[in-house]
Design a protein around this nucleic acid. Structure first.
Length: 511
RNA sequence: GGCCCGUUCGUCUAGGGGUUAGGACGCGUCCCUUUCACGGACGAAACACGGGUUCGAUUCCCGUACGGGCUACCA
């Protein structure tokens, strides 16, 4: 048990797009597996036929790939020794029924024939009787139609007649259940709080409760990490392991804190990410055709996305925040995961992307930026674009801001900032620009230092304070009032283009 | 309602019986820059409350409050 090979799984159900909370669970599993040289498995928990969403499985796989947290075993990543990894397919093999039968034989599970209506009535009755927690349990089961209340003959007759039934876990009435959680320590719950969970549904499919246990055991999972929302049902799971005689095979449990809404309260939901995406990739829901933009399409780097997610509930113990995937693998440990839920912080998420943007080389940025330039009808050499990126990147959080921040590096501005013109354009400054153009035209080198010196000399010669014309000159060249160092811009676009822009301006604003 | 889990600056968090309670995001001021940004400096900003235990609790225990989760033939 102690030296068991580390094998963890991410086991989503294909009921929609994988959201960032799910990605984080996958990430923690991935990091833990890699840290210990173990296996990371993708298992698809598609036992609910009614909630199946076409395309969800593929979306999950693509998301994990984009995030760079790929499983090494399971659906979409090469089947391993425990195939199949889709629960619907495992069900066809009779795997779950076998375990359910074993529980029945051991007297720890039973057949229940109650219809939905009968169950509703029971709940209503109990509510009317002011029962604190209406549930199918050791007490209420005595008034229901199941193999515990019916005679053996009746049960056989119903079964033979093909009457729909479920198999329920027979939870003892009053017994203390304790279990150890890596993150939370010992948790104690009385079995009176646990209901007789359905293990096998009337359509023959197992529920999550049965299926995940059977699969975790058969797939030799060593550690089960999942969201905190599973904590209340963990006692029932402990019972199932026990009644199956599999307590020794039980993975160690770790219930992860949830990601909470940035403001307001509650679990993070699709609507409450304050303008940032909920999903890693664009997701279109086939059920209602609603669509959501992804982090990828919003211009986030996967490294930044992952880095942000991992620090929601975990930290390396020092003040380090920007960590590569390799560093994360190195540093990761379950013991340093917090107990409390973490509110999602959109502002800091953007900051993470900015940090990664800065780390990229100008060439890498050029590769990302060039397709965007093409959309604006700009064709430029990679060398030129890389130089442009060098100037722009300090001001951006995302590559998709580059165009807005530096379009004037690629095309002659068609208009000039009106506010600056209003304030700075007059006969004297106009004459200065004219004179400056002549001086710049004589320059043999257009290196930033040369043009800057030329600007200063011209200002001195004409007796005008540089501050009076600097901003105007910037607008002449770029059209806008803010941007990278002006002389760097001119060096990049070159003498010919710079002079051209000055001519254009002088012509357009003739006094 | 019941059960379970939690609670350090607005947010993510470090720390842990004796600290000027540390860092980051965001915010503010200043410096750099004849722009914006980057960078730098500085600043405002937290141990939910009440009882214990203790020479001493933010740290340990118990309550309370607040927050979150669960309460399906969903996962």
């Amino acid at each position: 048990m102690e030296n068991k090979r580390v094998r963890v799984r991410f086991a989503p159900s294909p009921t929609g797009g994988l959201h960032m909370g799910g990605v984080r669970v996958a990430l923690f599993n991935y990091l833990f597996a890699k840290k210990h040289g173990g296996d990371f498995i993708l298992r698809i928990e598609d036992t609910d036929q009614t909630r199946f969403v076409a395309g969800a499985e593929e979306y999950i796989i693509n998301s994990l790939k984009w995030c760079g947290i790929e499983p090494n075993e399971g659906v979409g990543f090469g089947d391993g020794p425990h195939a199949p990894y889709r629960q619907s397919e495992r069900k066809e093999l009779g795997i779950y029924k076998k375990y359910a039968d074993k529980l029945i034989e051991g007297g720890h599970a039973y057949y229940a024939f109650d219809t939905t209506e009968e169950l509703d009535e029971m709940r209503k009755r109990m509510e009317a009787a002011k029962v604190a927690a209406p549930q199918y349990n050791a007490v209420s089961r005595q008034n229901m139609r199941n193999s515990l209340t019916l005679s053996e003959d009746e049960v056989k007759k119903l079964l033979d007649a093909g009457t729909p039934y479920v198999i329920r876990l027979k939870v003892p009435r009053n017994e203390e259940i304790r279990f150890h959680d890596i993150i939370r320590g010992w948790v104690v719950v009385n079995s009176s709080q646990v209901d007789d969970k359905v293990l096998l549904k009337s359509d023959g499919m197992p529920t999550y409760h049965l299926a995940h246990i059977v699969d975790d055991v058969e797939m030799k999972i060593s550690h089960a990490m999942r969201g905190e929302e599973w904590l209340p049902s963990a006692p029932a799971h402990i019972l199932i392991y026990r009644y199956l005689g599999l307590e020794a095979e039980m993975p160690q449990l770790a219930h992860l804190p949830l990601i909470l809404k940035p403001d307001g309260h509650g679990k993070l939901s699709k609507r409450d990410t304050s303008g940032l995406p909920m999903f890693p990739l664009n997701w279109q829901d086939p059920r209602d055709n609603s669509s959501y933009v992804g982090y990828k399409e919003s211009g986030f780097f996967p490294e930044a996305f992952i880095n942000m997610l991992v620090l929601l509930g975990w930290n390396p113990g020092d003040n380090k925040e920007i960590m590569s995937k390799d560093e994360l693998i190195q540093l990761f440990s379950l013991e340093r995961i917090n107990k409390a839920g973490a509110k999602f912080d959109p502002e800091k998420t953007k900051w993470f992307n900015q940090q990664y943007l800065r780390k990229k080389t100008d060439e890498e940025l050029a590769d990302i930026f060039m397709p965007m330039l093409k959309e604006h009808g700009v064709e430029a050499s990679k060398d030129f674009v890389a130089k442009a990126c060098k100037l722009i990147k300090e001001k951006a959080h995302f590559v998709n801001e580059f165009w807005l921040l530096g379009f004037f590096l690629f095309e002659t501005p068609s208009s000039h900032d009106a506010a600056v013109l209003e304030k700075r354009l007059n006969a004297q400054s106009y004459a200065f620009i004219e004179e400056l153009k002549n001086e710049l035209s004589d320059l043999s080198s257009f290196a930033a230092a040369e043009t800057e010196a030329c600007f200063k000399a011209t200002a001195e010669k004409t007796g005008i304070a540089p501050g009076q014309v600097m901003q105007l000159f910037r607008v002449v060249i770029t059209g806008v009032s803010g941007g990278p160092a002006l002389y760097e811009i001119m060096e990049l676009i070159g003498k010919e283009e710079s002079i051209k822009r000055m001519d254009f301006f002088l012509e357009k604003n003739k006094i």
